[in-house]
Simulated assay, not measured.
Amino acid sequence: MSDDFEEILAPNLYYDRYFDIDAVKILPGEYYVSSRNLLMVTVLGSCVGACVRDRVSGIGGINHFMLPDDRRNEDQRVGSAMRYGDYAMEILINQLLKLGARRERLEAKVFGGGNVLPGFSHNVVGERNAQFVTDYLGVEGIPVVSRDLLGSYPRKVYFFPADGRVLVKKLRSLHNDTIVQRERSYQAKLRQSRVEGDVELFR
């Protein structure tokens, strides 16, 4: 595996009996896009997820990422974090356009950025992630039609790209150790990686 930053196409396909539909589970650092009727599910703590779709064709996708904090000097940290955030969003949009989505018809719903990682009395990690994803979509001219960001709870997100529905469940009463450990592991992996090269945005 390359030690560059990578976004991974989510491999966790399953059948959701409750919603009676094929589904895919997206973990930190993963994304998924589809042109068929499919449920996309992820659990977000401090990470953010962008649900992006072509509002006419129903081609849609979701990602799950956080900005790396590599503990180097401030200029390097901010530079690499922004490049990784750009990459996480661009690879999602690129794949949607390759499936036939039209850029001018894209819309987004964004979620996550909760203050769930222990040791942070203020919502620094989640706030940076939430601010990045909204700023990025604004610069790219992709309207954010719905959002549920920040706060102190993890969220389970159910995205139905075919019709644009998103169901969000705030996990107030559950033990969040798994979520925290998963994000800690992802955060550590980001610190060990590096960003090289540029990603060309497929238009």
Results as ranks from 00 to 15, higher is better:
residue 107 E to V: 07
residue 138 G to S: 15
residue 84 Y to F: 15
residue 199 V to I: 15
residue 38 L to E: 01
residue 45 G to N: 09
residue 141 G to M: 09
residue 136 Y to S: 12
residue 86 D to N: 14
residue 73 N to G: 09
residue 59 I to V: 04
residue 115 N to Q: 14
residue 10 A to W: 02
residue 176 N to P: 04
residue 70 D to P: 03
residue 138 G to V: 05
residue 90 E to M: 15
residue 163 D to S: 13
residue 133 V to N: 02
residue 2 S to P: 09
residue 156 K to G: 09
residue 190 L to N: 00
residue 179 I to G: 01
residue 196 E to V: 11
residue 162 A to H: 14
residue 128 R to W: 14
residue 30 E to S: 12
residue 2 S to Q: 14
residue 97 L to D: 02
residue 56 V to N: 11
residue 167 L to N: 11
residue 128 R to Q: 10
residue 146 S to G: 13
residue 88 A to C: 08
residue 107 E to C: 05
residue 25 K to S: 12
residue 120 F to N: 10
residue 16 D to R: 03
residue 171 L to G: 14
residue 93 I to R: 00
residue 28 P to S: 08
residue 162 A to I: 08
residue 141 G to N: 09
residue 5 F to W: 02
residue 112 G to M: 03
residue 62 I to S: 13
residue 89 M to Y: 03
residue 21 I to L: 14
residue 153 Y to C: 03
residue 145 V to N: 12
residue 201 L to W: 11
residue 69 D to C: 07
residue 187 Q to M: 11
residue 80 S to Q: 14
residue 199 V to W: 06
residue 105 R to Y: 14
residue 33 V to N: 00
residue 162 A to D: 08
residue 83 R to H: 10
residue 129 N to K: 09
residue 57 S to G: 04
residue 202 F to D: 04
residue 152 S to Q: 09
residue 105 R to H: 13
residue 180 V to L: 11
residue 175 H to L: 05
residue 202 F to V: 11
residue 130 A to D: 06
residue 88 A to R: 01
residue 116 V to Q: 02
residue 185 S to R: 11
residue 129 N to Y: 03
residue 44 L to P: 04
residue 155 R to H: 10
residue 15 Y to T: 08
residue 67 L to R: 11
residue 43 V to M: 09
residue 19 F to K: 04
residue 67 L to I: 05
residue 52 V to N: 05
residue 128 R to S: 14
residue 86 D to L: 12
residue 16 D to H: 06
residue 77 R to N: 15
residue 4 D to I: 10
